[in-house]
């Protein structure tokens, strides 16, 4: 059992595996982002209530989903790092944080832009947008904490603890914000909650979600490999890589 865990966690093994997996992830990401983009932008019918501004859903929802999933993935990687001391897990957590923050920003920006034609204003303290904003602050905290330590090891462990504390808090924050919203606001028209969407609308959305997730997977694999090169540059197997001519 332990041998398997440590074999999967060894940078060399992970590097080889991700070399093989990464191209497929990029292909899947490019295909589904391309297909979903064309379908969502040009082929899907306009919404009878919101008209063409509804097409923002195809970037807003995948980004929002990814923003939350990346935090959970980061916390899981942190847990693996703290329990089994697997370095690759920490590298994954380290490269996931900026991408998660970028996706949270994308969700916030597209939500705000969507708000103009639907609500008539850039920002509404809507429950979803508010919890997205808080999630952005959580990401920024994790990134800032990792950077604040001069020792990489301490920064990694501190960021791991914070990511785990954060992931326990995310559902609590989400539900408290929803409670707060229903308390202060009579239920208004929410952006993404809608009764049954026709397949011509939700299928492109599904494809876009797949595209965003495979982009995330491919990017993480690529950046973890870079992180391995950065941290393990002294190792014999790294020097023997054919990518590094001498």
């Amino acid at each position: 059992m332990w041998a398997i865990v440590h074999k999967f966690g060894s940078p060399q093994w992970f590097y080889r595996l991700s070399c093989r997996l990464e191209p497929w992830c990029w292909v899947l990401a490019a295909l589904s982002l391309g297909a979903g983009g064309v379908w969502g932008l040009a082929l899907a019918p306009a919404d009878y209530q919101q008209g063409e501004s509804f097409r923002i859903i195809y970037v807003h929802v995948p980004a929002a989903l990814l923003a939350q999933s990346v935090f959970i993935a980061m916390a899981l990687a942190s847990l693996v790092f703290m329990v089994w001391k697997i370095k690759v897990a920490d590298m994954a957590a380290a490269v996931m944080a900026p991408f998660g923050a970028a996706m949270t920003f994308t969700a916030l920006f597209s939500g705000a832009v969507w708000g103009v034609p639907t609500w008539g204003t850039w920002w509404v303290w809507d429950a979803r947008l508010t919890s997205m904003l808080i999630l952005l602050f959580l990401y920024l905290g994790v990134i800032a904490l990792r950077g604040a330590f001069s020792s990489r090891q301490s920064g990694a462990r501190a960021a791991s603890v914070l990511a785990m504390v954060g992931v326990i808090n995310i559902p609590i924050i989400k539900y408290s914000v929803e409670w707060w919203y229903t308390l202060h606001q009579s239920a208004t028209f929410s952006l993404t909650e809608r009764p049954a969407m026709p397949a011509s609308m939700w299928l492109p959305l599904l494809i876009m979600v797949v595209g965003f997730y495979s982009f995330f997977a491919a990017l993480t694999l690529l950046r973890v490999r870079s992180e391995i090169l950065r941290r393990e540059g002294d190792k014999r197997w790294v020097r023997a890589l054919k990518e590094i001519p001498s």
Binding site: G37, L41, A46, G51, E52, S53, R55, I56, Y58, V59, H60, A63, T106, F109, S110, V113, W114, V116, P117
Partner: peptide, 16 residues
Amino acid sequence: AMGGHGVYVWSAWGVT
């Protein structure tokens, strides 16, 4: 033009 909502749709997609 996106039915008059072009600015919003294209800026959201563009930033993403």
